[in-house]
Every structure is written in C-alpha cells, then in structure tokens.
Design a binder for these strands. Structure first.
Lengths: 373, 373
DNA sequence: ATGAAAGCGCTAACAT
DNA sequence: ATGTTAGCGCTTTCAT
C-alpha cells in the first residue's frame, strides 16, 4: 500500500501461492488450477494490481506499441490516417506513439530513433522521402516491422499502402478534358531541392501524381509542363503559385491539387482574382475533407479511402511482426472521384451560367456522382 | 552482433571498462574520465549501441513519455492541440502516446488504464466528462501527473488549461446584438444523457459556453432558452438542429456554434434553406480552422490559442512531474474574436445587400478586425 | 500444477 | 574515477 503499486510478489503472497503461479494466473499463460487462479485474481483485485508493461516487455521483447510518423497531424488527410491507425491498433491491443515529421527527413529520423529506443514493435510511416530511408532500413534490420503509408519507399523491402495515384490523377484530368479544358494546371506539394528534371523524385506519391498528370496531358496532345508549379508546401505557397499561374498569358482554366490544403490556396487565389468557380476556373482536389461539400460551390474531389488505408497498414504491420520474413507487400487502394460542382466548361465555351448566380441549386444534392479510379 | 542489439556490457567489454563506467559515460551521469568516456563512446558508436529505454525506465521510474487523450483527432481543434503537445513534448525529450475517446468516458478510462500500465509520466486529457473522473483521480493517486486541457475537471485537484469561455461567448453574442439581432441561436455539442435542466453539466467548457450565452441573452432582455439546441454531436446533428431552429415561427437570424464541425452543419442548413450569409443568417463559430477564411463569406470566429494551450499544458505537466504536490493551477487563456464577414444586420434591418450578390468584395481582406476576449 | 531461481538491460548504492 | 553488486517487475526454464 505504501510502497507503490502492488507487484506480482505482493499478489502471490496475498494469495498464498508462488510468484510463478500468480504470474501465470495474471498473465493468462501456462497451467493454473482453477482454485489458484481464483485466489490470485481475487488478491489482485483486492490489491488493485496492475501489470507493469515495462517489465513484461523486457522479457517478452514485445511492447504492444507502434510508432506512427506523419508529416503533419493538422492536415486532415493525416488526421484521418492517424484516426484509422489508432482505431485498428486499439482493436489489436496496441498503443500508438505519434510523431510529426514536417516533411523533414532529419526530424523523421529522430522520431524513428526514439521509437526504437522505446522498443516499439513496429513503425508506420508516411516517409518524408521515398529514397532517403536509411533509418527505416536500420529499424527493419533491428527487427522492427516497417510499413509505409501514403508513400512507398525505395531501396528497401517495406510493405506499403498507397492509392492508385496515376489512375486517380488521370481520372481528374480526363474529367477536365471532357468538360472542354485544355489549359489544366497542377500544383505539386513538395519537390526535392536541386531537382533538375522538374519532376521531383523524392516522394513516390508526388511523383506518381505528377507523372499521371503529365501522361494524361501528353496523350491529349497538351503541353505537360506549362501549367505545373512545384514546391507548394502550404496554403500560402499554393496561393502564390496559383496567382502566378493565373498571371500568365493564357492562364489555366482548370487546376488540380494534391491535397485539401493546397486547394484552399487555389480558392483564395480565385477569390483574389475575382474568378468564379467553376465559371472562370474549374478545380479538383485530392482528399475529401469535411468542408469540401460545404463550400460554394461544393468541391469535386478525389477521395482517398483513408480509414481503409490506416486499417490495412496496421494489418500489414501485425502480419509482419508475427512473421518477419517474406517479401514486401504493396497494397494499392482505389481512390474515388467525387463529382460535385467545381468543374464546368472553360470560360466562353457554352458556359451554363454567366449571370453570376451560383450554378448549383440551393438544397441540391452535393454528391452528384462518384466513380472509382 | 548476432545476439541482437549491443548492450552496456557489450560496450563496456569493447571499451575495456566496467559496465558502471560505460553506463555513466553513455548515460551522461556521474564522473567519468575523459579518456574512458571517449573509449566508451567510440565503442558504442562502433557497436551501434542504443539504450534500452525500457530497462532504463524500470530503474528510474520515468519513461519520458506522456499520454494524450483527445475526443477526436479529426476535429481540427484537437488536431492542433495534439500538434502543440507533440511539439512541446519533443522539445522536452518526451514522447506522446495518443488516444481518441470519442467523448466516451469508458473509452477514455481504457486509454488511461493502458497509459498507466505503460507507465507514462503524465497524462494530458480533454476529459469526456468533467465530473466522471475517477480514473483520472486514480492515475493521480498512482503518482502520474494529470492535466486537463480544453475542459476542467471537478472533484479532484488537476491542473487545467482552458480559455475564458464565458467571455468569449459573451463577445460573440454582443457582436450579434450590436448588429441588431435579437433572435440568436446556440448549438450545444454534447449534453449528458438524462439531463433535466437543459443545461448539461458534464463538460465544463460546454457549460461555460452555454452559461455565457444565456447570461448575455438574459441581460439583453432576451429569452435565453428559446433558440438553444443541445446534443449536436457532429455535422449532421448540427444540420438537423439548425433546420429545426429555422423551421420555428420566428427563426433565429444569428447562430453561434461551439466548434468548426457544427459550423459546417449550420452552413449546410443555410444552403438547404436557401439562406444567404450574412443577409439572412449571421454566424459565428468557435475555432479558426484553415477553411474559415476561405468560405464565402469568410467566417467570423472565436479563435482559441490552441498551440499556446498545448504548450502550456505540457509545461504544467512537467512542473507537476517534478514536484508532485502543490495546489492545482488553472490556466485561463484568452480567446480572440476574429471578425470577418459572416455577421451582418438581421434581414429587413437596412440589409446592405439584397441583390443576391456576395456582400464582400472579391479580393477583400478576409480579416477585418480582431479583438481579445 | 506449482515452485525456485535465473535473468531481460539498466541504474544506483556502496566500495575502493 | 572506477568497479562490484543488488535489484526494478516480470517471464521462463527447470525441477518437483
């Protein structure tokens, strides 16, 4: 009572059995007679016994905890991933240690290092870099399971959960093309410093999306580079990039953004230029955030199955913890193009509304169509 | 090399010193000669030694980790709190274990229990209930520091970090009154089941806000109950509650919501009813999310100093970990009323716009005024 | 089925 | 300044 929480010896003593028996009863392993178990459990209850997970982990080599590294928990996409990972982890008796990398590899490295010191059983990471993954390889070498989420890693065999990014982008571009657009912009979030080809290779998902964009534009006979801006780290950068794009001789009439935060920058730019959506500018964004169907007009988006992604990542991780070897599994999930009202024909091409009134009826369903891509 | 990661004995052997010396050099405590320390560090580097935080914690009784329980990480307010707590924790060498309670006390209890088993040094919690806190009291009794964030707890002496909710709400109501409104609605998030007085007592912050609302209305000679709806757990519930409010004989011309998610419900309701903001309905919401200044019209909000709240909570927690006793400290931070464009005079009272055109100029500054409350 | 004892990796006296 | 030793609370042989 006075010497801190009760321990197994305390319980054993109170129950009149050996520590081994008490431990077996409490831990639910080995053989214990019904009578012993009852006495032990009663004594434990009485003393308010709680297992010391630290001591247990020292022996078993398992901590029942996993580390999660996301770029920024304030990004709704990552918040949702975190939610999903947390839920799935809990179901399987795991706890999650959270870290933000801010898209910085050094920060991520530090977080991973601490995770290893804390002896997590596995790490789920949205890597700040798909190529600079030495620390992840080391974690793996140290016997810690690693699964990449949202982005794949190269140079090591790690499981991953991502969406079909090229297909998703292609669907969006196709949607723009079908509406008659030929000047289609793309805002890329990050890009590696000193990248020469204008196609950052750092983050697989960024690459895939840009690649998908360029492929789609090229096969439509359009210039795949003209309306691309890279390095849009946040809302503000996206705003400026968009204003820049809009300031060009033949400005884009449609634009695609790789996440909801950059979409806000685009909306801001449109407002600043007095551009109506979709009459003057059509937009599609990745990630179906809670405000996407509330803004006017409701935003057409590419919805990623975030919760499924998190859940799958946890599954892969647990599988990997059980049987460390076996080749890496790469799960690709399908994103969904959700058509709402932010895409219309380009200006001057039989615009369905030139009165300045909202092109969608009040009270209209905000989810007009949805297709998997 | 083959027997898992190097341990202190391994390093000691390689460096030709005792385990104690190696431990001292590695742990940075006690006295070690320069020569020894160098040899130890070199050997450690060579062997890729990493401390086992588990073993260390067994001895020191400190895990350098803290548990954080929020209602829902997908709520931008909590995401920001989590961000801030994570940042502050990292600066002080702490890691954070995250859990979502979904506003459910039982879930919270389970999370706290696991945190205790994992021997966290402290817990920061946005309690699902301000009164049902037995588990938090137990944590405290077990020597784990507890600080409440966003909400206070009763019946136990726990530090807390909250904002001046009544003042904040009063500022919003005053703002509405000044614009000429007399039919001002309020959507309350949660309310305890079986609550009779219509004023849920479960969550201090909810109580304070509702109290502030009622006080303000009463002192303006208005009915403090007529336009209140409780139990708005999410966007959908808020939407329905708002539609209900709007369906009344003399519907409200202004409404206040306690978080950004409920605000979305209000915006949805307005759209469904074909109501223009602020011409037909004025709105103010708690929490300045990233989309608040992007929607049309930009939303006037009560901005909570989320990052400061998280940082302060961590400070209080670390203080408490160092010196467990001393009376509880209650930090009250000031929220800021950010005026944008979602508040105008009630309909029919010299409306500045009845053409259906947006009442704010394109490209206008979205932050018109800001005052502390 | 149960007990005695060893030991996980580390720190903290206590010696020297 | 450095080494020796005794545990932290638990699981796990190995006996019995």
């Amino acid at each position: 009572m006075t010497k801190g929480p009760a321990t197994i010896p305390d319980v054993a003593k109170a129950a009149g059995v050996s520590t081994a028996t008490a431990a077996r009863a409490l831990g639910g392993y080995g053989h214990v007679s019904e009578r012993s178990r009852e006495r032990v459990l009663a004594a434990a209850e009485e003393l308010g016994y709680r297992p010391n997970a630290l001591a247990r982990s020292m022996i078993t080599g398992r901590t029942q905890s996993l580390g999660l590294v996301v770029a920024d928990i304030e990004n709704p996409f990552f918040a949702a991933v975190t939610r999903a990972v947390g839920d799935a982890a809990r179901v399987h008796g795991y706890e999650v240690l959270l870290a933000n990398s801010d898209e910085d590899v050094a920060t991520e490295r530090g977080a991973v290092r601490l995770f290893l010191d804390k002896r997590v059983d596995g790490i789920i990471v949205a890597p700040a870099s798909s190529t600079d993954v030495e620390h992840l390889r080391e974690a793996q070498a140290a016997g810690v399971a690693v699964v990449a989420i949202d982005r794949r890693v190269t140079g090591m065999a790690a499981d991953s959960v991502t969406v079909h990014n090229r297909a998703a982008v292609a669907a969006a571009v196709t949607h723009f093309l079908a509406a008659g657009h030929t000047r289609i912009g793309y805002l890329r979030g990050t890009v590696s410093p000193g990248e020469h080809d204008g196609l950052g290779r750092r983050i697989s998902t960024g690459d895939e999306r840009l690649l998908g964009y360029r492929e789609s534009l090229r096969s439509a006979g359009l210039d795949p580079d003209r309306y691309v801006r890279v390095g849009c780290l946040g809302r503000k950068e996206a705003l400026h990039a968009m204003l820049d794009l809009l300031g060009q001789p033949d400005p884009p009439t449609a634009v695609l953004t790789p996440d909801s935060i950059l979409a806000l920058g685009v909306l801001l730019a449109a407002r600043e230029r007095g551009l109506a959506i979709p009459d003057d500018l059509s937009v599609i964004s990745f990630d179906d955030t809670d405000w996407a169907d509330v803004v006017a007009p409701p935003l057409s988006v590419i919805s990623q199955p975030v919760h499924a992604m998190g859940a799958r990542a946890v599954e892969l991780l647990l599988d990997r913890i059980d049987r460390a070897h076996g080749r890496a599994r790469h799960v690709r999930l399908r994103a969904r193009m959700v058509e709402r009202a932010s895409v219309g024909p380009p200006p001057g091409v039989s615009s369905r509304s030139s009165t300045g009134n909202p092109p969608w009826p009040a009270g209209a369903s905000d989810r007009r169509q949805s297709m998997s891509v």
